[in-house]
Nucleic acid binder design. Structure first.
Length: 442
RNA sequence: GCGGGGAUGGCCCAGCGGUACGGCGGCAGCCUGCUAAGCUGUUUCUCGAAUGAGAGCGAGGGUUCGAAUCCCUCUCCCCGCGCCA
């Protein structure tokens, strides 16, 4: 949530930020209406309560002095009726105001590009030697601002769907029978590859100051609402029937809410957490996109980076966690580009977001594999995560970034490292100590 | 699931119908050659330009002029018992 006091004092910057995101600024108008009413009503309530407190103190004194109190009691009863009336009104106004306030997006970073549509994301840099079909070269060049290195290939690599089928690495049809579309059974060396990726990412991050955490895979409403923005997020979440529980869509959320309502000592910052968990997503509204294979699925495993830090350091940490994610992909030798995501595509929480998009030669496209965001104090405020300073308590800043989403990285490996003779694919060297094998073939 | 005991400010803890005691830690100041000790104040949220006011004792209700305190419902933690990968 945004800082209400800051909004009252500087409405302009919030209007500007919301406009740049293409979000509806009438919510801000509505906020000011309700907030004005709220403040006015609060003053009345507090005045009445003040009077009441004076009377109850008088009653206390009168009893001690042995005097009668019946008349005073009647006056308090009268006040109570008025207070009750105003307070129930206050509750309604406050609920309405807070609903509206939660819809106001975070202040945009100066360095986030003002634009709309993922196709307009700004290319920051690219890395690696991509294998590109002749017919995809133009697209590749423009997608890398003409900076990308590539070698032309004359045979399109097999799609991961066909490859998995042929090499007996997955059973998608039976998953359709037992669970439905966008589920999978992966098998044999693909399972080992996934475990290797998980272990590799966990080792990499724990060597860099991250505490590794396996969180709860379900959260209650309060935690989920604090960590995300339920209003726009509920379509992606699975709800447990009859319980106040939601399946997590990323370990970001249980990790963020882990410190909910806590006030940390300044010396405890920064807190670096690496989360590992399955992620459950309904993918409602993704009909027709990536319908086959394991690229877009209802359940996948992700290793996530999360940082709680001092507000002065969050921009450095955004570069740090993006750097970590990039290094993982460099070490895996997967070609990628980094984009600075358009203001219109950031969601409400992020002040700025980088995506890493890996090159998928069989698709001839860059596709998102990592998303790294600085949520500044927006998420921390909703969750009540603060730290003490000598000038009072302040909200921490929170950042999150994918390290490895196993399914997409497995697809990237299967599609980028196919052998020229068409017989299977190589395992990136850095994973071999974890897999115990360096190729997968029929 | 069944008993029993708990949840109080950053932490520890008292209070168990009259409006949150005390300690530790943090911060500010005083005091001493310096440090330590000691002393004083402060420490959460909200409204207010401010003197100030209101709220807050796990959450939500109730009783009362007045609830941390009594009653009801719920959540979580601890100790037994049961069940269990």
């Amino acid at each position: 949530m945004i800082d209400i006091k800051l909004l009252r004092d500087n409405p302009d910057i919030f209007y500007k930020s919301a406009k740049a995101r293409g979000s509806d600024t009438s919510t801000i108008d509505r906020f000011f209406e309700l907030d004005g009413e709220w403040r006015e009503n609060l003053r009345s309530v507090n005045d009445l309560k003040h009077q009441k407190n004076i009377f109850t103190a008088k009653i206390s004194d009168a009893i001690k002095a042995g005097n009668g109190v019946d008349e005073l009691k009647d006056q308090v009863r009268q006040l109570n009726l008025e207070i009750e009336k105003l307070e129930s009104r206050q509750k309604i106004i406050e609920t309405d105001r807070d609903v509206v306030a939660k819809l106001i997006p975070n202040l945009l970073s100066e360095s986030a590009p003002v634009c709309k549509g993922d196709e307009n994301n700004v290319v920051v840099r690219n890395w690696g030697l991509a294998r590109v079909m002749e017919e995809d070269v133009e697209y590749y060049k423009s997608s890398t601002a003409n900076m990308g290195q590539y070698s032309v290939i004359d045979r399109r690599p097999e799609s991961h769907v066909d490859l998995m089928q042929r090499l007996n690495l997955a059973d998608l049809d039976r998953a359709g029978k037992t669970a439905g579309a966008r589920f999978f059974y992966i098998k044999n060396r693909l399972v080992k590859l996934e475990l290797a990726l998980m272990n590799y990412a966990v080792d990499y991050l724990s060597e860099r100051g991250f505490t590794v955490v396996e969180p709860p895979y379900m959260l209650n409403y309060r935690s989920m609402d604090g960590a995300t923005d339920m209003e726009t997020f509920k379509d992606t979440l699975y709800k447990i029937e009859g319980e106040d529980l939601y399946l997590i869509s990323t370990s970001e959320h249980p990790i963020a809410s882990m410190l909910m309502d806590e006030t940390l000592d300044e010396r405890e910052l920064p807190v670096r957490i690496a989360g590992i968990s399955p992620c459950f997503r309904r993918e409602a509204g993704a009909h027709g996109k990536d319908t086959k294979g394991i690229f877009r699925v209802h359940q996948f495993t992700k290793i996530e980076q999360f940082v709680f830090c001092h507000p002065d350091q969050s921009w450095e940490f955004l570069e740090e966690i993006l750097g970590n994610a990039e290094n993982l992909f460099k070490n895996l030798r997967i070609p990628y580009r980094v984009v600075n995501v358009c203001s219109g595509e950031l969601g409400n929480l992020a002040a700025k977001k980088y995506d890493i998009e890996a090159w998928f030669p069989s698709q001839g496209k860059f596709r998102e594999v990592v998303s790294a965001s600085n949520d500044t104090d927006y998420q921390a405020r909703s969750l009540g995560i603060k730290f003490r300073t000598k000038d009072g308590n302040r909200f921490v800043h929170t950042l999150n970034s994918t390290a490895i989403a196993t399914t997409r990285v497995m697809v990237a490996i299967m599609e980028n490292f196919q052998r020229d003779d068409g017989n299977g694919f190589e395992i990136p060297e850095v994973l071999v100590p974890y897999t115990g094998f360096d190729f997968v073939s029929s």
